[in-house]
Design a protein around this nucleic acid. Structure first.
Lengths: 250, 250
DNA sequence: GTTTAACAGTGGTCATACCACATTTGCTAA
DNA sequence: TTAGCAAATGTGGTATGACCACTGTTAAAC
């Protein structure tokens, strides 16, 4: 049945799991057979099977829990955000490019959310907005709520594809912004902008939601540019006021 | 130096390569050390090293060529499209959701392309448009040129993030459409629409480019819906005119 | 000088053993 | 009886060593 031994063993594993998913024999949250058994069943070594599972895990299709087993990823459709993050490290995305991508995606998404958001969606969005106001003195927490707010809006759009894309981009932005959020001075204004977006969505006013999201992103980008130039001057004229925390590792 | 043996060996590999990339010690197209050597250097087994590389490969960060070595992915920033494809198989994206996502992304992208496309970009876009006209009698080839056209437009937008996202969505769409393109009857009209988009971009007319892209996607979705209802009726009233080719595997 | 064959280097697979974590089972002791 | 704990089981994670398949180079043969 299988290809002759030693052909594309690991690829066979991926294809097999994919087939099971497409046939509906594996669904979100289901547990896969144990590695040793599945390897035997597919006629490949356990090493090759693990290689295949590793690929699937990197794509966010399966999650493996040490001691428990491998499971098809449950919950909402989510793309692995690492990939975009690596791309950023390789090719060096600029903040301008990130804001442009967010503008393209999120303005429309906000409009859709205003059309379709139900009360459950609204609660989550509102919670994150309050979370922002509650963490004005903790930039990192603020940034987290910021990202979660935008993801909540994307979720409310009702389109899982757009939601997955917004998740990726927002996480990418957060990773980059995390290092400079400390010098931001407009957290309160930012929170107000998010509140305005929320209110437009709650009022089911797509046009206003689009406008508010557009204004918010434009202002956020502008503020970040101002920060950078000011921080650049400061570095020349005097000692920097705020040191970005050094990311020390291993 | 390393974590005590047997901790998160495979994770260590990913983190290490990531560090090398972020420090600029590994750039696009570079070749990584041989597996046996790199494993020794990191103090992990070759199996664990390979697991890490497999993850990186699945994310599209590295490409490994049998007999030659492992290389940092060269060329333009591209996200692995498999992930979205798996999500589709798991959660079942509808054509309507796909078209909505494309509408959000590609209308704006077309506008940006009209602002920024240079002659190199225009050549590629034009080539794909002609490729569509040249393959009116070969639906699969037509569909390929269709996808490549949209990617060329995204590339011309000058934003690598948006380009990567459009690549993912266009590939997702193509995989889904591949099975039904055979019954399409409006290939020529579709080609004309693409030509109109190209001309708007070539004329550096963003507003027209956006409008043309918008019209194209709306018409394509409409045509596909018509197809489906007609095909549904046909299946009931009489034998289907065109059998979608069965995807036979293994 | 050209062609061809051998060689060394590299990733791909396999088999086996052992370790670490999670859950269940069943026994002990209160 | 029952609450608590410990052993047993099942699972993924890692390590080792060997061999196979592909690639590129080098040296030999023509």
């Amino acid at each position: 049945m299988n290809r002759f031994d030693g052909f594309a063993a690991t690829q066979l594993v991926v294809a097999h799991v994919r087939g099971l998913i497409e046939r509906g024999q594996l669904r979100s949250g289901d547990r896969l057979p144990a590695e040793r058994e599945l390897a035997l069943r597919l006629g490949v070594s356990r090493a090759s099977l693990r290689a295949g599972l590793r690929s699937l895990a990197a794509m966010g299709v399966v999650q493996t829990r040490h001691g428990s087993g491998s499971f098809i990823t449950s919950g909402r459709p989510v793309l692995a955000t690492d990939a975009l993050s690596f791309l950023a490290a390789l090719h060096g995305f600029t903040p301008a490019q990130m804001f442009e991508a967010r503008l393209v995606l999120e303005v429309s998404v906000a409009g859709l959310a205003a059309e379709r958001a139900n009360s459950d969606h609204l609660v989550v969005i509102s919670d994150e907005a309050t979370g922002m106001f509650a963490s004005l003195d903790d930039p990192q927490a603020f940034l987290l709520h910021d990202a979660l707010f935008h993801r909540a809006v994307a979720l409310a759009s009702g389109n899982p594809i757009l939601s997955a894309l917004v998740n990726m981009v927002s996480e990418l932005f957060r990773e980059q912004r995390r290092q400079t959020i400390g010098r931001a001075s407009d957290l309160k204004e930012s929170a107000e902008e998010h509140r305005a977006i929320y209110q437009a969505i709650r009022a089911h006013d797509p046009e206003r939601a689009r406008r508010m999201m557009n204004d918010h992103l434009q202002r956020a980008e502008h503020a970040q540019v101002i920060e950078e130039t000011r921080s650049g001057e400061a570095a020349v004229e005097e000692s920097p006021e705020v040191m970005p925390e050094a990311a020390v590792k291993s």
